[in-house]
Each structure stands twice: as structure tokens, then as C-alpha cells.
Design a protein around this nucleic acid. Structure first.
Lengths: 196, 196
DNA sequence: TCCAAGGCTTAAACTAGTTTAAGGGTATTT
DNA sequence: AAATACCCTTAAACTAGTTTAAGCCTTGGA
């Protein structure tokens, strides 16, 4: 049992912790991979074959528009999950990229293996239900912000919610996540230092 | 067994259909209610006690900001689910309202009863996992649009995705959902008729 | 039946956020 | 060690979206 698997097993202690049998089944079905900075675990046009747990490092998921601009949908750092759910379950081609921002270590499970865990162990269905529910709540807060707050308010609440990420990410990536240009983020930051 | 329950049981046929025992347990734990136009099933400051299935009619979920403006987070019409997940599971007070836009019929289950179904029947954990996953995918598409598309593009894709709702809702409600003012939506609509 | 409350539009003045362009700084790569 | 790519900022001109105000038309309640 590697330290990577320990991180995953610890992670499940936040939900319904796994028993011995479940831990064994889990470790037989998740595979460890190391990903370089700028390495992709999913590219637009490919089917998303894996559900990914981030052990260390950091990823971004983004879509590219007609004008070749990247738009960051989400980040995932240590102890977070990342996958294109839509492509993963439908097995249709994905419209997004998932790329490492830092050298990273991940644990991945294939579609068929996850279905095996769901079918044979009630607890995996339950734990993943709860994981997705929490991500749904985060996403809903983000939608609320995007329809009701200014860019400055959104930036401040990003800093508050992800202080850890804010240090590690270049501002261009944060701007893309907030839905504004890097130039405008620069203006906002300047205005904030003058306020403080 | 009322026609309302039939609608719910039919709904589950889209996922893993229920067997006889599960149908009985379900019908013992969901309660039917009729809600008038402008009736609330959740108000800001209350704890969201129910998970709600809409049999007929239509609801909006919205937050109210400091300036007393309403911002629509989502709509739910026939055969859709609506609840403030965050408040429902945490049992903390909610920051949103859920209000009927039309006279409606709903089926509701309490927190403890849903936990009972989750615990005793693997299939409910699974079905609700899938339901939430689908809603997560929808929400993610909405986030992508909000960070990458103009208001006109968002309006057009709302019309495409919810042609049914677009007819039933006043434009003020759609504007609030899109995160723009009714005046600007009016401009967009005018520009579109001139294009067509 | 009347009237109050929404709902839709128009228009003028305004503000938030983008675009284009340029310059300087700091990491990665070679 | 040099070269290149990326990152951050500034500024001027522009465009998308808001605000305020007014007018008209429907709808539902008393």
C-alpha cells in the first residue's frame, strides 16, 4: 500500500470510511500516475475514461472557444476529484481539457471498474453521491455569484474560498476562472491595494 | 396510489426502476401537497426540510441581494427535482427562496425519511447519485456559458435548452436567470427580430 | 368594473469590462 | 548564458450591459 492510496483512504474518512474489504477492492482498481507540468489527462475530442483523485499537484479543466480562448471551469488540487462527468458516463467525446498546472501525482479508476464498485458495494454509491452533492453546492454558489456579483466581488470571494490556490496560480488563470480578462483583473487588484 | 405517485415512479424508470417493495416504501414517505401561485416552499432564513419532486406546475429558486434584487438560480417544472441541497443536508438556515410561479402539485420527502431510504435501499443512493450528477453537468454547462458567452448567446441557448419554459415564463424572470436586466433583454430581443 | 400591480419597451446617460498595443520582469528551456 | 516564452501592468479607445425615467398594455383582485 503506497502513501498515495493512504491519501485516498484518508479522504474517504470524511464520508463513510471504508472497511478492509472495500480498501482492498479500491486499491486493486485505482492506478497511480505521475503527470508532468503541462501534461494532459484529457483532451477535447477524446472520451474521458477515468475518474481522477489528485494526491498532489494541481490541475485545471478548461474549454476553448471559437476564438481559441481558454476558459477555466475548475481547478483541482490535493485531495480533490476531477473528471468530465458528462463524457465519463455518456462515453461521448469531451469538449474540455484537463491539464496539470504543477507536476502531479494522481489515482485513476476506469469507468467499468467504478461501476463494479458501485454495484458491489453500496458504500461507494453513497460516498460518490455525497462527493457530487458537495461539488454541486460549490457550483451553485458560483452560478449565484456570476449572475449577481461584480468581478471585484467574485475575485475577493475566490481569494477567501481558495486562499491556498490563489498563491499557487498565475493571475491569468484566475482571470480565466472568473470570466474576465487579465488586464481587468490587474485593474481590480490595483484598485484594491489603494483601498486597503 | 394516486396519479402523482405514478409520475414519480415513472420518473425512476429513467434510472434504475423501483421494485414493488421500494415503491411501497417510497409512497409511504413522500407526501403530496398543492401549492398556489406565489406560494413558498422555502424562505430565506428557514431550514430546507424537504426534497421536492414537481408533479405539475413550476417553481423558481432565487437569492435576494443587499439591494433587494432577486437572482434566479434555477427553475423546476414537471418531473424535475428542487431543493436547497446545502441547507437540506447541513440543516442550517437557507439563503434562498423557492416559490411557485404557477399553481403546482408536488411530492415531498423529509430529511430523515430520505436517509432511511438511502440506508435501507442501495437503489435510492444510486438513483439520487445519478440525478445529482445530471444536475451537476447542467450546472457546469451554465458556468461555462457565464464565463465565456455574451448575454445574447446565453439567451439563445436558454431558448434552445428550455423551449418549454421560455413560453411559460415572463421575460423578467428569464433576465434574472441570465444575470442581466429586463431592459437589456428587451434590447437583445429587438436586435434578434431585426436579424431574423 | 375599476384600479393597482406587473410586465414590456424605448431612450439617454452612465459604468463595468474588453481590446489593442506596448514595455518591463521573471522563469523555463536550450 | 542566452533566448524564448510567459506574466503582469498601464493606458487609451471602445463595447456590452446598467440605470433612471417614462409610457403603454395586460392581468388579476377587491
Amino acid at each position: 500500500m503506497t502513501t498515495s492510496f493512504n491519501a485516498l483512504i484518508e479522504h474517504f474518512k470524511n464520508y463513510f470510511p471504508l472497511d478492509e474489504k472495500e480498501r482492498v477492492e479500491l486499491s486493486e482498481r485505482f492506478n497511480e500516475r505521475k503527470i508532468k507540468r503541462r501534461g494532459f489527462i484529457l483532451q477535447q475530442g477524446d472520451v474521458c475514461r477515468h475518474f481522477t483523485f489528485v494526491v498532489s499537484g494541481c490541475f485545471k479543466m478548461y474549454a476553448v472557444d471559437q476564438a481559441s480562448k481558454e476558459h477555466n471551469l475548475q481547478f483541482a488540487a490535493e485531495n480533490d476529484w476531477i473528471t468530465d462527468l458528462s463524457s465519463f458516463y455518456s462515453e461521448k467525446t469531451s469538449s474540455v481539457y484537463i491539464e496539470a498546472i504543477e507536476p502531479s501525482v494522481i489515482l485513476q479508476i476506469k469507468h467499468a471498474d467504478l461501476l463494479y464498485l458501485y454495484t458491489h458495494f453500496h458504500k461507494f454509491d453513497r460516498n460518490f453521491r455525497i462527493i457530487i452533492e458537495q461539488k454541486y453546492i460549490e457550483l451553485q454558489n458560483r452560478v449565484l455569484q456570476s449572475i449577481s456579483s461584480t468581478a471585484e466581488e467574485r475575485y475577493l470571494s475566490f481569494l477567501e474560498q481558495y486562499p491556498n490556490l490563489a498563491n499557487r496560480l498565475p493571475n491569468t488563470q484566475i482571470a480565466s476562472y472568473l470570466g474576465i480578462t487579465p488586464e481587468f483583473l490587474s485593474k481590480i487588484r490595483k484598485a484594491l491595494t489603494h483601498k486597503a
